[in-house]
Design a protein around this nucleic acid. Structure first.
Lengths: 327, 327
DNA sequence: TGAGTTTGCGTGTGCGTACACGGAATTTAT
DNA sequence: ATAAATTCCGTGTACGCACACGCAAACTCA
C-alpha cells in the first residue's frame, strides 16, 4: 500500500523497477483513484477566495452571490469553504483589496476582472502560483489558462445589432448611449459596441442606418437633453443602465423608440413591462456565480478535466417571455 | 456506533430513552452525515434507467444522449450506472419497452413522456414504488412529485406569438403549420399553440391579425400546396420541422414570409443561415439530458433537497447569434 | 424459577485512500 | 571490516460511515 501510494503521488522513495511494475498494473487494470475515499482520507478544506465588488446595492452582483451561495451550499460537504473579499466602487479600494487577496492563502480564486489593467498583473501572479482561477462576468482574453464563465460580449453586441435592425420604418437612426460608471468592465463594454457595429458591417444591404453616440457619466439623468433624441428610432445601451434612457423618454413622452439593453434589473424590468424597453439581453448572473464555483469544485475537488470557457446563452428577454422566477 | 447508526437510519432495536438522547446531541452539535463516507461504506451502485426514443436518426434526441453521457461520465465515480431502454417510433414498440422498463429493477428513471396517455399509468407505478423520476423534454402536469427538466411549452408559444408580431406590414396573416409525426409529444405541441394564441388574446391592440391552420402528416413535403401560402405573412411551426415549410417556400421562390420554429436541427440551421427561417427557439437538448441526470444524482447520491422543476431558458436563435458550438 | 424468546446494545470489520513511522536493505564513509 | 548514512519498503492507523454478528438484558410463559 505504502509503496503504491508513493508511486501514485510520485513522492519518490521507491525503486524505479517497482515504479514501472506498478504503473504497468495501473495501466493494465485501468485503475482510477476513488476521489471519495481520497478526499475522506485527505480530510482537507478547499479554500476558494471570492473577489467581487461590494454587492449590497448592486442587483446584478447580488444575483451572482446568490448563485455562489447556492453552489457552496452543495459543495460544503466536500470541504469547500469560501472567503469573500469585497471592494468598493473605486480603483483605490480595488487595489487595496488586491493586496489583501494576494496575501491570503487560498486553493482557488473566483474573480471579476472589472478593472482591466490592474487585473492583468494580479492574474499573472496566480498563474505563477499555479492556483486555478475562474473569471466571471468579463474575460481577459490573454492566453492564460484561467477559466471564464460569462457571455461572449462581442456576440451579444452583434445580436443587439440584429435586434435593432427590426425596423418599422426603413430609414433608421440608431443612438448608442454610453452611460459609464467607474465600476464597470470597460472591455466588455467596448466588445459589445464592437459587435454591434460589426453586425451592420457584415450586412451591407442595411445601408439606410445612421449612428450617433453619446456618453454620460454616472447615473446622470440630468445630463440628458431632448435634442439628443431628435430623429432617433432606436437606442442601444451597452450595459445595464437602459432604464435611465427609458426614464427620460417616458418623462418627456417620447414614444416609438426601440430600446435595447442588458440585464434584468428591477428598473429595467419595469420599463420592459411598460413597453418602453423592447429587448433585454439577460446575462443570467445567478447561473454565472453558480457555474463559476462549480468549475472550481470540479477542477480541485473532483480533479476532472474541465472546459476552459463556459458561455452563458444570449437570452433575449421581451416583455412576453419575462418571468420573475429567473433573475 | 452501532446504536447511533440504528437511530440515524431509524432501524429500530434501540430504547426510546437513547433515541432521544442521541437525537438531542445530533441537534445540539448540528451533526450532518458525511455523504462521502456514507457512499464509500455503502459501496453501492446507483442504477438509473434511461427510457427514450431510439435516437440514431433523431438529431434532437442524439443531443439529449450526449448530455446524458457527459453527466454520467462525471458521476460514474460516485457509482452511477445507466441502463438504456430505447423504443422505435410507434406505440407498439413503446408499450413493449414500457414492460421491459417496469420489470427492470432501478433506483431512478429518466424518461420522456412522449405518448401522453400511455405514460400516465407508467409514471404512477414509479410513484407507487417510490422511485424518483425525472421527465425531460415534455412534462405531464399531474400533481405528481416527479421532476421536470425542459421548457415551459406554453410560454415558448407565447414568445413565438410575440416574435411573429414583429410586423413589416400592418395587416398580417399567420399560418400555423402542424406537421405531425407519431413520435411526438402532442401535449407540448398543444401547449405551444395554446400559448401562441394566448399572446394575441392578451394583446387586443393587435386586431389586424388573421390566423389559419394546416395539418400535415409525417414529413410530407408533397402534401404542401401553393394556395396554402397565398397571402400568408408569417408562419409558426410548433415543432422542429420548420425546415419542411422553408424548403417548400424556397423551392417555389416565395419570399418575405417570416418563419418561426423550434430546435437547431441541421436542416433548420441551413434555412436560418439562408434567411428563410427567421427565428428558432432552442430547447438546449444537451443541457436537458445533462440536467436530468444531474437532478437524479443530487437526489439519490447526494440526497439533497432539489427543485422539482428546472426550466430551460427560452433561447431565441437568429442567424446572427447562432454559433455551431451550442447544439 | 428456569428455559425460551425478544429486544437492546457494543464490537469489529470493511469501504478506498493518505500518510506517519519504523525496520530492512543498500550504499557510503572510515 | 564496521559504523553511519541513505534509500527503500511494509505495517498500522485514520478518515466517517454501514452493517453483520454475538452477547447481555429484559421480557414471556409455563
Amino acid at each position: 500500500m505504502g509503496t503504491v501510494d508513493r508511486i501514485i503521488h510520485n513522492r519518490g522513495q521507491v525503486a524505479q523497477e517497482n515504479v514501472d511494475k506498478v504503473n504497468a498494473i495501473i495501466e493494465k487494470y485501468g485503475y482510477k483513484r476513488n476521489i471519495l475515499a481520497s478526499n475522506l482520507a485527505l480530510n482537507k478544506k478547499f479554500r476558494f477566495a471570492v473577489f467581487l465588488p461590494q454587492y449590497e446595492k448592486l442587483e446584478y452582483w447580488k444575483s451572482q452571490i446568490i448563485g455562489i451561495e447556492k453552489a457552496v451550499l452543495e459543495f460544503s460537504k466536500f470541504g469547500v469553504v469560501l472567503d469573500y473579499f469585497f471592494y468598493d466602487f473605486n480603483e483605490v479600494s480595488f487595489k487595496k483589496t488586491v493586496q489583501k487577496v494576494l496575501e491570503f492563502d487560498c486553493d482557488a480564486l473566483l474573480f471579476a476582472p472589472i478593472f482591466h489593467e490592474e487585473s492583468i498583473h494580479f492574474l499573472q501572479e496566480y498563474e505563477k502560483r499555479n492556483i486555478p482561477v475562474v473569471m466571471i462576468d468579463s474575460n481577459i482574453d490573454s492566453e492564460s489558462k484561467h477559466a471564464y464563465v460569462g457571455q461572449d460580449a462581442f456576440q451579444s453586441g452583434y445580436l443587439a445589432g440584429r435586434l435593432s435592425s427590426f425596423a418599422v420604418k426603413n430609414k433608421r437612426h440608431i443612438l448608442i448611449c454610453k452611460i459609464t460608471r467607474e465600476i464597470e468592465s470597460t472591455s466588455v463594454y467596448l466588445q459589445r459596441i464592437d459587435g454591434f457595429y460589426s453586425f451592420f458591417k457584415d450586412h451591407e444591404e442595411l445601408t439606410n442606418f445612421k449612428f450617433s453616440e453619446i456618453t454620460i457619466k454616472d447615473s446622470g439623468f440630468d445630463q440628458l437633453t431632448l435634442d439628443m433624441f431628435s430623429g432617433i428610432n432606436s437606442i442601444f445601451v451597452p450595459n445595464s443602465r437602459a432604464y435611465i434612457v427609458a426614464g427620460f423618454l417616458e418623462k418627456n413622452n417620447i414614444k416609438g423608440v426601440r430600446i435595447i439593453g442588458y440585464d434584468l434589473l428591477k428598473e429595467n424590468i419595469e420599463y420592459l413591462n411598460k413597453g418602453i424597453i423592447d429587448f433585454l439581453i439577460n446575462q443570467r448572473p445567478e447561473d454565472q456565480g453558480y457555474m463559476g464555483i462549480t468549475y472550481l469544485y470540479k477542477k480541485l475537488v473532483l480533479q476532472e478535466e474541465t472546459e476552459k470557457t463556459h458561455y452563458i446563452p444570449l437570452e433575449i428577454i421581451l416583455k412576453e417571455n419575462y418571468s420573475p422566477a429567473k433573475n
